[in-house]
Design a protein around this nucleic acid. Structure first.
Lengths: 153, 153
DNA sequence: CTTAAGGTTAAACTTAACTTTAATGTCAAT
DNA sequence: ATTGACATTAAAGTTAAGTTTAACCTTAAG
C-alpha cells in the first residue's frame, strides 16, 4: 500500500509517517520502481502501536530503543520472537498507565473525602499533604513522557 | 522564602519557577524591597501539585486554566471534573492497549497454528492476510499531554 | 495535452517547556 | 573592600515531535 492509504488507515499524517521513517522508527517500507513508498499490511499495526505507546507516555526515543528492529526480526523469520517482545512492551505500557491512573484516583478519593464542614481551601491543603505533595523535592514518580497535542488539535 | 529555597524544597530549577510565573501559573509571589521574589509556604504545595499534574498528563496550558491563583479560590468541582476526564482518557488508552495486545496474541496463535507441512514463508503470508482488520484509523483518544523528561534525567 | 490527485525531497518553520547566557544587583562574611 | 553565593532581567538557545513549504515527478482521467 502507498503512503496515503497507510495514512488514512492509521489516522496519521503522511508527513508524520515519513518523519517516523527518518527517525528510524518505521523501517517497514520498500520503494516501488517510481520511488513511491510501499508498505506491507503490518505497517498499520506497527504505526498503531507507536501511536498507542506515545499516547501512553513513551517518547519516540524510548520507542526506538524499546521496539528496535521489528522489521529485521520479522524479515529474518523470528516473527514469533518479535511479537512476544511487542506484547511484553505493551504490558509494560499497561503497567505504566495503571500507575498513572492510580495516582489520579488517589487524588480524587482524597478530594471526595472532604468533610462537610471543611472549606475547599482547607481540603485542598489536606489533600496535598496527604498525597505527600508537600514533601521534599526528591524523586519523582516514573511518570509520563508523552505528547498528545495532536489528539486535542 | 526566596526562590533558591523554594527551588530546593520542590526540586525544581529556579529558572523553571520563574518560567511558571511568567506563564501565569504561579501568582503566589511577592517582592521584597530589594526586588527579590518572596514566596509563602503554600507555594511549595502549589508547585508540587503542578509537578504531579504534569507527570499525570496535564499540559501547562491545561493547568493554567485549571489552577486557581491561590488555594482559597480553589473550586472543588473544576478540579474534580478535570481529574475524572483525565482518568477517562487513561482508561480509553488502556482499552486500546488491551485491544492491541489481543491482536498480537491472536497473530501469535495463528503462527503457532502453522500446519506441519507448511513452509514458514507460506505461513507468514497466511498470517499477514488474516491480519487485515486492525486499521481502525478513526478518532484518536483524548490522550495525555505530558512531558516528564525531568523524571528520567 | 492538460489537469488533478497524489507522490518525492530538503529545508525551514512551529509549539511546548524549559535552560542558558550575559550583564548586573544584593548581601553576608572575611 | 573584595569575594562568593544568590538574586534580577531580557533574550537567545535547546529538544521533541512534528508540520509546512517549495519545487518537482507520476499516474489516471477527460
Amino acid at each position: 500500500m502507498k503512503i496515503g492509504e497507510l495514512a488514512a488507515k492509521t489516522g496519521l499524517a503522511a508527513s508524520r509517517i515519513r518523519f517516523y521513517e527518518r527517525m528510524g522508527l518505521l523501517q517497514l517500507v520498500e520503494r516501488q520502481a517510481n520511488g513511491y513508498r510501499s508498505y506491507p499490511a503490518e505497517a498499520v499495526l506497527v504505526l498503531n502501536l507507536i501511536k498507542s505507546a506515545q499516547e501512553a507516555g513513551f517518547s519516540l526515543d524510548e520507542l526506538r530503543k524499546l521496539m528496535p528492529a521489528d522489521l529485521n526480526a520479522w524479515e529474518h523469520g523470528t516473527l514469533d520472537r518479535a511479537l512476544r517482545d511487542k506484547i511484553q512492551s505493551i504490558e509494560a505500557l499497561q503497567r505504566r498507565l495503571e500507575q498513572n491512573k492510580a495516582t489520579l484516583l488517589a487524588v480524587l478519593e482524597q478530594i471526595e473525602a472532604k468533610p462537610e464542614d471543611m472549606s475547599c481551601a482547607a481540603n485542598a491543603r489536606r489533600v496535598l499533604s496527604n498525597m505527600g505533595l508537600d514533601g521534599e523535592g526528591g524523586e519523582a514518580s516514573p511518570g509520563l513522557t508523552a505528547k498528545a497535542r495532536n489528539s486535542k488539535a
